[in-house]
């Protein structure tokens, strides 16, 4: 009897140890590529990262060729891409963050009604649409009809349509985790409905909402395909929403297509990767700091 028990425990311990190693191996397999990518990019791209990299627009082919042939650092940087990305992301955020939060709260509050489930299905479908198709839609709506040419506004439109479903879903999912008793506590104090939403639901779920928004942002920051059909790209810094602008991922594509600018591919990619990674880390730190539910 005793021997059987000891045998049993031994077997369980062995299974336990084996599983532990499998889990560690899994973790290593996931983490190593990230370090390899960042390390590789850093090694190949660090030389280009200096002040000019952030303050000067992309060089033209001739400048790049001259530098490349004499083995110097390629002049210029990604300022036109940075400003273009920033411009489009800000416009997309101004529309999609409030609209997405409101729609998410609406869906949560009216979850079972028929038009709510209709909007929810629409959101789910939208989330699955390939981004290039959203680019084509923005092209048809904005490029053809509104700005009558490639423009930052068209790019923002495509990015807005991408961000919206992400924010709506994360908002609704976050709200679902708030216990009903918290709402009741607010109502029992006479709090009107809209104040309950603004002063209780949103602050209580702040970490989830912020995480959703930041993940949506980091998702669209790297989008290239829809911007090719909308923002097009621009060699100089421009803040005119009705004109074409560049974006960091568009620049990476441009650099890639010019054999003299390969070095800039690495540094621009390094920048984008580090930026998106820090957004993720930031969202994690916010999530843990303001986590109430």
């Amino acid at each position: 009897m005793d021997n059987l028990l000891i045998d049993n425990i031994r077997r369980r311990n062995r299974t336990n140890t084996r599983l532990k190693y499998i889990i560690i191996a899994g973790a290593v397999i996931t983490v190593v590529p990230i370090f390899l990518i960042v390390g590789n990019l850093a090694l190949k791209g660090y030389r280009q990262i200096n002040l000019a990299f952030f303050t000067e627009p992309a060089p033209d082919t001739f400048q790049a060729m001259m530098a490349a042939s004499s083995g110097e650092v390629i002049p210029g940087g990604i300022a036109n891409g940075l400003t273009g990305s920033l411009l489009m992301v800000i416009i997309a955020s101004l529309v999609s963050i409030p609209l997405g939060l409101m729609t998410g709260v609406y869906l949560y509050e009216n979850g079972t009604k028929r038009y709510a489930s209709f909007i929810r299905s629409l959101t789910e479908i939208l989330q699955g649409v390939p981004s290039i198709i959203l680019g084509i839609i923005a092209y048809l709506w904005v490029v053809r009809n509104i700005t009558r040419g490639y423009s930052a506004l068209a790019g923002s439109t495509a990015l807005t349509i991408m961000m919206l479903p992400l924010i709506i879903r994360s908002t609704e999912e976050t709200m679902k985790m708030i216990p009903v008793t918290i709402r009741e506590a607010a109502f029992a104090l006479g709090t009107p409905y809209y104040k309950m939403i603004i002063k209780v639901l949103i602050p209580v779920s702040f970490s989830g909402l912020a995480t959703g928004v930041l993940l949506a942002l980091s998702r669209i920051l790297g989008e290239t395909a829809p911007l090719m059909l909308t923002a097009l790209g621009s060699p100089s810094v421009s803040l005119d929403v009705t004109r074409p602008v560049s974006a960091v991922p568009l620049l990476i594509w441009d650099f890639y297509n010019d054999p003299n600018m390969v070095n800039l591919v690495w540094s621009a990619s390094l920048f984008l990767m580090v930026f998106v990674l820090s957004m993720n880390l930031l969202s994690r730190s916010i999530a843990s700091k303001h986590k109430y539910i």
């Binding site: 216990p179 006479g190 104040k195 539910i293």
Partner: peptide, 27 residues
């Protein structure tokens, strides 16, 4: 006023803020 079955202080508020929540939530 009302007190519920499960304690339900507002999780985002401090003890102090919870006590005066009736005032702050109604502006």
């Amino acid at each position: 006023g009302m007190v519920f079955q499960r304690p339900n202080p507002f999780p985002n508020m401090t003890i102090y803020e919870n006590v005066v929540a009736g005032y702050s939530l109604n502006d």
